[in-house]
Design a protein around this nucleic acid. Structure first.
Lengths: 160, 160
DNA sequence: TTGTGTGCAAAAGCTTTGCATGTTG
DNA sequence: CAACATGCAAAGCTTTTGCACACAA
């Protein structure tokens, strides 16, 4: 199994190549944000990442966080989600199998699952409706039975 | 086949019963909004509905539009979606089969489709992951092949 | 050196809230 | 007539933009 550090090295190389290929600059902020994202194992929003960076004493701005997130999404190192709220959530994606999400509407807990039938549906519908399908989003919403920390809401955000 | 008017009468009755059951008031605004929604056949956002009502010379406020939309969603007469943007889209849902969406990322066109495998996935995952699943959202994103009015963006919003 | 990227703060866009007024039950 | 709903405008939140400065190439 790969160590976290080796994964981070790999994604930095990928990002570096992507920046180079597109004539974009390799700024320390961009790599710092990538690194912080790959240190996390959860779903997070832009503000949480920004605050997290601030707490680590990085000098970054929200604008750069948003800008870099978009770059990372465009080169498939990060995935962007909307779990029913007007708030984009992100997660690292390199080295992880494609998966979908199950969200608890009470406590905000997010579980992941894979199902090959999704791919079949994509293929069939793309064919049938004459679309070239590039990606999808499948979220199942419900309530986790048993231990559900009802009131907390979303994965405990860090405070500044 | 039911006429549009008879459908509108049915949903008004359902809404009326829902309001009654929950001790909420039957205001003319609420029914006017319901009626306007059921006159439409597209996916729309709150602002478009508000502007549409204004154009019809109704005297309503955004607050009431948002409030009523939420009421209608809660009694299943309207469905709320997020098609990748930070903008809620709505559609009437009474008398329509459950369906999912295929969105063109170029022109914003929205197609609908049904696939029984979704239900199977919901059942299986709910069981497997110990969730009581209440609803879901499946969006396929891609580009419509051939005639795609590339630049227009979203279903042409009406102007005030 | 040159133009892209950054930080900062202000603006923008969608949604919610506060308050005085109106209206339902 | 009392409580709830409404209209209006302001506030809230997430995200984007403008601008002067910094720095990668």
């Amino acid at each position: 199994m790969k160590t976290e550090d080796s994964v981070i090295q790999e994604v930095k190389n990928i990002f570096s190549a992507h920046l180079e290929k597109n004539g974009l600059r390799k700024t320390p902020e961009r790599f710092a944000i990538l690194q912080e994202i790959y240190h996390r194992n959860d779903h997070f929003d832009a503000e949480a990442l920004y605050i997290h960076m601030k707490n680590q004493n990085y000098r970054v701005s929200r604008a750069t966080v948003y800008n870099t997130l978009e770059l990372l999404v465009s080169c498939d190192l990060v995935k962007k989600h909307q779990f029913g709220k007007n708030l984009a959530q992100y997660e690292k994606s390199y080295g992880f199998k494609q998966h979908d999400h199950l969200i608890c509407v009470d406590c905000g807990k997010v579980l992941e699952f894979c199902d090959p039938r999704i791919q079949q549906i994509k293929d069939m519908m793309g064919d049938l409706l004459k679309f070239r399908i590039t990606h999808h989003s499948l979220n199942l919403y419900g309530k986790c039975e048993g231990a559900c920390p009802r009131t907390s809401g979303k994965d405990a955000p860090e405070s500044l």
